[in-house]
Simulated assay, not measured.
Amino acid sequence: MTETQHIMLAHAVVYTVVPLSLLYFLQGDIVANMAVVSWAMAGLLIIFIVLALWVSRRFDRGRDTVDKASTVES
């Protein structure tokens, strides 16, 4: 566990809000609107991949290790 769930939550909120807001605010042809939403979601997935690589690199370097002694209640 890398204790970075807050980053995933923030990305999930953005990943939900962006397509819905684009569908709400865009006017015109449904095909053009879906193309814009598809490109936006593809960009958000690229950002998610970068975030996942960043968190895994931090974990591999030992910055996000959980202290087992502090998590075990005696």
Rank of each mutant, 00 (worst) to 15 (best):
Met1Gln: 08
Met1Leu: 11
Met1His: 11
Thr2His: 08
Thr2Leu: 06
Thr4Gln: 03
His6Gly: 11
His6Ile: 09
Leu9Met: 07
Leu9Ala: 09
Leu9Asn: 07
His11Ser: 07
Val14Tyr: 06
Tyr15Pro: 01
Thr16Asp: 11
Val17Asn: 00
Val18Tyr: 00
Val18Ala: 04
Pro19Ser: 09
Leu20Gln: 14
Leu20Ile: 15
Leu22Lys: 00
Phe25Asn: 13
Leu26Ala: 11
Leu26Gly: 03
Leu26Val: 10
Gly28Ser: 09
Asp29Ser: 14
Asp29Gly: 05
Ile30Ala: 14
Ile30Met: 14
Asn33Ala: 15
Met34Ala: 04
Ala35His: 03
Ser38Arg: 06
Ser38Asp: 09
Ser38Met: 10
Ala40Gln: 01
Met41Leu: 10
Ala42Gln: 03
Ala42Asn: 03
Ala42Arg: 02
Ala42Gly: 03
Gly43Ala: 02
Ile47Ala: 05
Phe48Arg: 02
Ile49Phe: 12
Ile49Met: 10
Val50Thr: 07
Val50Pro: 00
Leu51Phe: 12
Leu51Val: 13
Ala52Cys: 14
Ala52Ser: 14
Leu53Val: 12
Trp54Asn: 12
Trp54Glu: 09
Val55His: 02
Ser56Cys: 14
Ser56Thr: 13
Arg57Lys: 15
Arg57Asn: 13
Arg58Met: 02
Arg58Ile: 00
Gly62Glu: 02
Gly62Met: 00
Arg63Leu: 14
Arg63Gln: 14
Asp64Leu: 12
Asp64Ala: 04
Val66Asn: 02
Val66Ile: 14
Asp67Ile: 02
Asp67Cys: 05
Lys68Ile: 10
Lys68Leu: 14
Ala69Val: 12
Ser70Val: 10
Thr71Phe: 07
Val72Cys: 05
Glu73Gly: 04
